[in-house]
Design a protein around this nucleic acid. Structure first.
Length: 725
RNA sequence: GCGCUCUUAGCUCAGUUGGUAGAGCAGCGCUUUUACACAGCGAAGGUCGGGGGUUCGAAUCCCUCAGGGCGCACCA
């Protein structure tokens, strides 16, 4: 036997595997089949009509550019789950879409316009800016969809959704109206996180704490004032209304309740000494200057002690009180002016360098200025009658606590609870233009909220837009057509798995639980699978600025999407960060080639296999060993241990099948005993077929190509999973 | 400060419920009349971060120490 010149082997197989020439053709074939749509599977008898649903709604990538390796990880994990379940007979839906990502997208476009045209959003105006942002979003969307297809993702494109399209807008407005009527959404003048750079409020979760060097100043307001206070922000002290000490602090107890007038750097202030248990005796002087308008803690303290709230800093982080030395100055300049004044007056007692955490805005990097503003909030502590008197906080906590939702890996439960327990009301209004406009209209004293604009003249819609996570929070059900009671909603909701990164556990996952529990009274999904961060070969975070970012498109072009997928998934446990290097991907390209050569060998060796070939006793043992391994792999897949399942397949195919079975087959195939030879031919044929079938969810392209070369007419993608026969 | 997590072969990491350790890559030796050099065969390499405990038995469970990573946080 000389396999290389056998006429039975397709030309293509005689050369090394070339993913570039196969992958796009294969994807088109899948897409054309229509089988990404579960209803088509049922129509053609490939899925039973009564089959259990398996649903994943794709975490919608932001339309801010293109996909990176983190997205590639997400797509790989989900596609493996989806392809496996589709083959295993489930009514499998993977619903794709994109996110308008309000603030991220707008600030990106604003930056580009500023750079290329030197214009701000206010120069362009709301309408023109929105036009530009929408054009950018469309282009991004197209790039993203293309990249997703290159990765092999078997999404049902007929159901594609966008967080800002018509159906989703209706869902957003419906939920808003309902929450407003339930008193869960309220408009209030409260202290918020103001980003002076982005000129908008942001939520607590959009704050990033940065460690900086700062100076802690210790001083008194005036010569007559009896208590010294410490602060890193002397400029806010012109807005002080009280000094708070701990109730048990005997050093100051004689002053509690007394009130003082002072002129602080030219600004008259009135200070009341109060006792509050939030004050730490051991910090600084043990006395805290209370600035209700510019500190979250102090705002709450003002609630407790009925203190006035004097705003002294405006939206541009500039002073709004004082004489020439302060009025209109930036806060940093005002700080210097006040420090100078304190020294001059001999009021300064101590200046020491400290490390301090500064709150900055995640998107713009602006230093957060806490300000009192009239904004929209979601009340997380108000009992909801229709939900058994439970609060949103409770509705978010319960399903995870009682395992209606399980998180993989499960130690994230603790992180989740920790976040919920510290949760405050969610500020949902933003002063940006791109996004869902708040569905509230005003006319004089009248206020209207609804899905459609009110009838009649004189109504003016709220200028603000909603936090982008408000619409993302509805994603599990808005994508299925809610608020209409659609068939899709009945069949596919609650969805089965939510697969995403732990970085958006609070931003998004928790909000989805909140919104779904509120609007539908169910969980949005049963399992949360969290993947880790994809780092480069040296363990650094991939980023454009570091120049170490990999483009999934480049990887696919160079090594094949299959190789990229396997490299991402093999050995990467859920929740843990992974490192990916070109070497690792190259290794998987070699694996694809290995499959190619295994197939060449087997095709050639079995060309003259008799139709009535049966497995000998010895070969049955080998086959049963594979079936045992396959059962283990199937169990791993069912428990979402994809990293183990892929590793086992890799090992079985390369070590057991190629190195052991193929090698030991060579003498048997040359045997004079026709039964021995036929048995071995049968064994090889069956093992090849079943291993590439089992590998298909992981490496869909090369396995589908090989299936073609084996003469299969049916798509491997819709071939039943080998254990289900 | 509170919480979570990690520390396993030179490097990167697996290791489902406790049963005395595995892979990939790198490296070493050999192999080029071979399905595949994008390969094969072989050898080598770890007291599973330190210490203590529970157990017949611990990489795995508990305590503690050391060092990384992450999350949360109103230390003014």
């Amino acid at each position: 036997m000389n396999p290389t010149d056998s006429g039975t082997v397709p030309e293509k197989l005689l050369k090394p595997y070339d993913p570039a020439s196969e992958e796009s053709r294969i994807y088109e074939k899948w897409e054309k089949s229509g089988y990404f749509t579960p209803e088509n599977m049922i129509k053609d008898g490939l899925t039973a009509p009564e089959a259990e649903a398996f649903t994943i709604v794709l975490p919608p990538p932001n339309v801010t550019g293109h996909l990176h390796m983190g997205h590639a990880m997400m797509l790989t994990v989900q596609d493996i789950m989806i392809r496996y379940k589709r083959m295993a007979g489930f009514r499998t839906l993977w619903l794709p879409g994109t996110d308008h990502a309000a603030i991220a997208t707008q600030s990106k476009v604003e930056k580009e316009i500023q750079k290329s045209e030197g214009k701000s959003r206010h120069d362009l105006g709301r309408e023109e800016l929105l036009k530009r942002v929408e054009a950018f979003a469309q282009a991004s969307h197209d790039t993203i969809v293309n990249q997703t297809k290159v990765m092999g993702a078997s999404c049902d494109w007929t159901r594609e959704a966008f967080t800002l399209d018509e159906v989703r807008t209706k869902a957003v407005r419906t939920v808003f109206k309902s929450m407003y009527e339930d008193g869960l959404i309220y408009r209030g003048n409260r202290i918020v996180n103001w980003d002076p750079k982005g000129q908008t409020t942001i939520s607590d979760d959009e704050i990033v704490h940065e460690s900086r060097k700062a100076t802690m100043y210790t001083f008194t307001y005036s010569k007559d004032f009896p208590i010294a206070i410490s602060t890193t922000r002397p400029e806010t002290k012109v807005g002080d209304v009280a000094v708070a000490v701990h109730p048990d602090d005997t050093r100051y107890s004689e002053f509690v309740g007394k009130e003082y007038d002072a002129v602080f750097c030219g600004v008259p202030i009135h200070i009341k000494v109060i006792a509050d248990k939030e004050v730490e005796k051991d910090f600084g002087t043990g006395a805290l200057g209370v600035t209700p308008a510019h500190s979250m803690t102090d705002w709450e303290m003002a609630d407790r002690h009925d203190l006035p709230r004097v705003q002294v800093i405006n939206e541009y982080a500039k002073m709004m009180v004082g004489g020439e030395n302060l009025m209109g100055k930036k806060v940093t300049d005002a700080r210097e002016a006040i420090v100078a004044w304190l020294r001059e007056e001999g009021l300064m007692q101590k200046e020491e360098a400290i490390d301090q955490n500064v709150s900055t805005a995640e998107r713009t990097g602006g230093i957060i200025e806490p300000l009192p503003k009239l904004q929209w909030f979601i009340d997380v502590n108000k009992p909801i009658a229709e939900r058994g008197g439970k609060t949103l906080k409770e509705l978010m906590r319960e399903p995870v606590a009682n395992s209606d939702i399980s998180i993989i890996p499960d130690y994230f439960n603790k992180t989740y609870f920790h976040w919920i327990d510290n949760l405050r009301d969610w500020c949902i209004s933003r002063q940006i233009w791109y996004g869902h406009r708040i569905p509230v209209w005003y006319k004089g004293e009248e206020i209207y909220t609804g899905v459609e604009a009110p009838e009649g003249n004189g109504w003016v819609q709220d200028e603000d837009t909603l936090d982008t996570w408000f619409s993302s929070g509805l994603w599990s059900f808005s994508t299925l057509g809610w608020p209409e009671q659609t068939e899709d909603l009945k069949i596919y909701h609650p969805t089965t798995v939510l697969e995403t990164g732990p970085d958006i556990l609070f931003f998004w996952v928790a909000r989805m639980i909140l919104m779904t529990q509120y609007a539908l009274g169910t969980v949005p999904f049963k399992t949360i699978y969290l993947h880790g961060l994809v780092r480069d070969g040296k363990g650094q975070k991939m980023s454009k600025s570091l120049g170490n970012a990999m483009d999934p498109l480049d990887i696919a072009a160079k090594y094949g999407a299959d190789a990229g997928r396997m490299a991402l998934i093999m050995g990467t446990a859920p929740g843990t960060d992974s490192r990916i290097s070109e070497d690792k991907i190259k290794g998987q390209k070699h694996f694809a080639n290995k499959l190619w050569n295994i197939t060449r060998f087997i095709l050639t060796a079995t060309a003259d296999m008799p139709h009535d070939a049966v497995l000998s006793e010895e070969d049955t043992i080998i086959y049963e060993a594979w079936r045992t391994e396959l059962a283990g792999i199937t169990a791993d897949l069912d428990s979402y241990r994809l990293h183990i399942a892929s590793d086992r397949l890799y090992q079985y195919i390369w070590k057991t099948l190629a190195d052991d079975i193929l090698e030991s087959s060579k003498p048997l195939l040359a045997s004079d005993d026709a039964l021995v030879k036929a048995s071995r031919q049968k064994l090889l044929t069956v093992l090849l077929k079943e291993t590439i079938t089992a590998l298909h969810p992981f490496m869909p392209f090369v396995t589908e190509s090989l299936s073609e070369l084996l003469g299969e007419e049916k798509l491997l993608m819709v071939t039943p999973w080998p254990t289900s026969r």
